[in-house]
Amino acid sequence: MDLRNVYEERRSINFFDRSKEVSKETLKNIIDLAVLVPSAFNLQPWEIIEVRSKEAKEKLFNLSNKQPKVLEAPVTLVLVGQKNGYDKSNPVWEEMLNTFGGDKKVVEGAQAMASALYSNTDADKLKFAESNVGLLAASIMYAAKHYGVDSHPMSGIDFEGIRKEFNLDESKTVVMTIALGYFDETKELYPRRPRRGYEEIVREV
């Protein structure tokens, strides 16, 4: 699908067709395309929980203000940010070392800069996690549309409850969830509401 069409045709779908599954292969293709999105120092401080089973859906449904789409969609993704994803335990640093021909000074300099930027306060750590995962979230929805899969992001959820229910430690934060599936053609969406454009949101300085 043409990129412009992807942007114009993606909608937040409230009604999913329960009879249509999103295959593992399709989901893998979506994620593998979406992760081409940039992240700070290429640290990719994220992970995804793929909620498919009936039991897991029920748990997530109860922690999502009982939004029906959680049960209707064949799969819902829980997007998780790693608040300490900048530290030396991130395996991406090893990849960076290999990419730069084993030059430790390059990697150590990047590690020092990342730590200085993101490790000072809890607010800095949270901003680091959420800003990077936000990039991934948008990328997932547009990648999904490229493969013909509809989506709906959700932030009306019990973030802390989901973190605990799915056994995530305190270094991780739930950023949002995204339901994925196919629009129920027996239903009707409201027309797309207008977006504020350049003239309204851009201030030149």
Rank of each mutant, 00 (worst) to 15 (best):
L97V: 03
L97H: 06
L97A: 06
L97S: 06
L97I: 07
L97G: 01
L97N: 07
N98I: 10
N98T: 09
N98E: 15
T99E: 14
F100N: 10
G101W: 03
G101R: 08
G102Y: 04
G102H: 09
G102M: 03
D103N: 15
D103K: 12
D103G: 09
K104I: 12
K104S: 14
K104D: 11
K104C: 09
K105C: 10
K105Q: 13
K105A: 14
V106L: 08
V106M: 06
V107R: 05
V107W: 00
G109I: 08
G109C: 05
A110T: 04
A110I: 04
Q111Y: 06
Q111T: 05
Q111N: 11
Q111P: 15
A112P: 01
A112N: 14
A112K: 10
A112L: 10
M113D: 14
M113I: 12
M113E: 14
M113P: 02
A114N: 01
A114H: 00
A114C: 04
S115V: 07
A116G: 14
A116D: 09
A116F: 08
Y118G: 01
Y118F: 14
S119Y: 04
N120D: 15
T121L: 09
T121H: 11
D122L: 10
D122S: 05
A123V: 13
A123Y: 09
A123G: 02
A123E: 15
D124Y: 06
D124V: 10
K125V: 06
L126K: 08
L126Q: 08
K127C: 07
K127E: 11
F128D: 00
F128I: 01
F128M: 05
A129D: 01
A129C: 09
A129W: 00
E130L: 08
E130F: 07
E130N: 10
E130H: 11
S131M: 14
S131L: 10
S131Q: 15
S131G: 07
N132V: 07
N132Q: 13
V133H: 03
G134M: 06
L135D: 06
L135G: 09
L135E: 04
L136V: 09
A137T: 02
A137Q: 03
A138Y: 09
A138M: 14
S139H: 01
I140D: 02
M141C: 04
M141Y: 03
M141E: 05
M141Q: 03
M141G: 01
Y142I: 12
Y142E: 04
Y142V: 10
A143T: 05
A143H: 04
A143I: 11
A143L: 05
A143Q: 02
A144R: 01
K145I: 15
H146S: 14
H146I: 15
H146W: 15
Y147C: 07
Y147K: 03
Y147A: 12
G148I: 03
V149W: 01
D150Y: 03
D150S: 12
D150K: 06
D150I: 00
S151V: 00
S151A: 13
H152V: 15
H152I: 15
H152T: 13
H152M: 15
H152Y: 14
P153G: 04
P153A: 05
M154K: 08
M154W: 03
S155K: 11
G156M: 07
G156K: 09
I157N: 02
I157F: 04
I157D: 00
D158A: 10
